[in-house]
Design a protein around this nucleic acid. Structure first.
Lengths: 227, 227
DNA sequence: AAAAAGCTAGAACGATCGTTCTAGCAATTC
DNA sequence: GAATTGCTAGAACGATCGTTCTAGCTTTTT
């Protein structure tokens, strides 16, 4: 921890500082470091000193950009998971058969989670939500996402394609699969992201509608216009 | 927090203490309280004082039964999740077609997780594992469970019943569904546990083998003795 | 009844936590 | 060039953390 102390002699600092003062966004730097720590050790398992030390700066820097530790958490959710519902709604909104739209939804969800994997892990860590504000905001996002799935599933149910009785349970099951893969997937593995997505989507589609969802069959369903 | 202070006048304490000293296992009492706190606020979000205060005792009591906070965690895992692999192995070991054994496995897993829901939630909270010992023990359990699923899935794959290419991914997907339901299921809801299990198992079986797994079809498969 | 063992309260320990404050440096504005 | 603003270091705050220790109480053993 107390490694090479910066003696901060004014004259020597100038030369070194000048090269270092590229300022590629201290705020973003702080957030990114916080993401690494929060996702690895949890919000409660991370101290503001951990983040400051990692960047080799004083804790004052953190409190200059954020009012408190929790604002750091909020800032992370803000640019990442916050906009997940809109993205998912956009994915299901387009045309096509409901099965096709569900497939698009799943792919969009997997992509979004993958793009913000660490942030999503932080978001999903229920035990780390302290404040009432953060808790409410999180719940709202979760409910929105759940509702998007329930909606499309009920549409499929009306067409008789969903055998399950309870679409809400079905939606939870789907969310389980999608959210769980962040825990075990390592991008440095032999599997391409796309192959993985297909495997997961196939599992979910089989589990939801119980038929091999080939695109041919979907288009056939679309054309025959159900009564 | 500092409510009615126990003045601990010796004479008055005797009469009150005598009725209270039923001693229904302080250790178990501590563990159960720890389970409540750990599952709700996380290991790091729970202080030993929280547990002691909840029971209205001194923190010395905790340190009399446990050497440190983490031993409390270990004790929880010990009686609950620790024996999960054995239970699951027992479930798949019996006779019957592989599909039937998978179904038994799923039911056993759901039952075990449900019986120790809070403990399982604690176990699944990755960010709370601090010590190297606990981390290794947890990993071992996880791997064992995963392997049990991979084994039965590969058996099904050899029979051509599993369409998925990667049984490991498939196993992870299944684990996602099973572990996720602890997050949203509330036993005080309108759903019976048994109906819920069937819904989840159906989803997984559809997702795994893609056919409605009625018991009639399974027995037919068993009888015709595959080449 | 005496001795040993089990259990508990309460104070105290150093360490670390989130947060605040002051003061000085660097960059920008005027 | 002076004044203002933006940024940072470092010390310090009270609170709380996990843990230890002492001493006294209760129960069991002898």
């Amino acid at each position: 921890m107390s490694g090479v102390k910066n003696k901060s002699v004014n004259s020597t600092l100038n030369s070194a500082a000048k090269t270092k003062k590229i300022k590629i966004g201290r705020r973003e730097e702080l957030i990114q470091t916080a993401v690494d720590f929060f996702s690895e050790n949890g919000f409660q398992g991370t101290s503001v000193r951990d983040i400051a030390n990692k960047l080799g700066v004083s804790i004052s820097v953190i409190y200059h950009y954020f009012n408190n530790k929790e604002e750091l958490w909020s800032a992370i959710i803000e640019y990442s998971v916050k906009h997940l519902p809109e993205k998912l709604e956009l994915a299901v909104m387009g045309g096509g058969h409901a099965l096709e739209r569900l497939r698009r939804l799943l792919r969009a969800h997997l992509t979004a989670s993958s793009n913000y994997s660490k942030e999503t892990i932080i978001f999903l860590s229920k035990q780390d939500r302290i404040s009432e504000t953060g808790e409410l905001a999180s719940k709202e996002i979760e409910i929105k996402v759940l509702y998007i799935y329930v909606q499309i599933l009920e549409e499929l149910q009306r067409e008789g394609l969903v055998k399950a009785h309870n679409t809400k349970i079905l939606a939870f099951n789907i969310l389980g699969v999608i959210n769980w893969y962040l825990r075990w997937y390592r991008s440095d593995g032999p599997l391409t992201a796309d192959a993985l997505y297909e495997e997961i989507i196939t599992f979910i589609l089989y589990g939801s509608v119980g038929v091999p969802p080939g695109s041919e069959q979907i288009s056939r369903l679309s054309n025959q216009q159900n009564t």
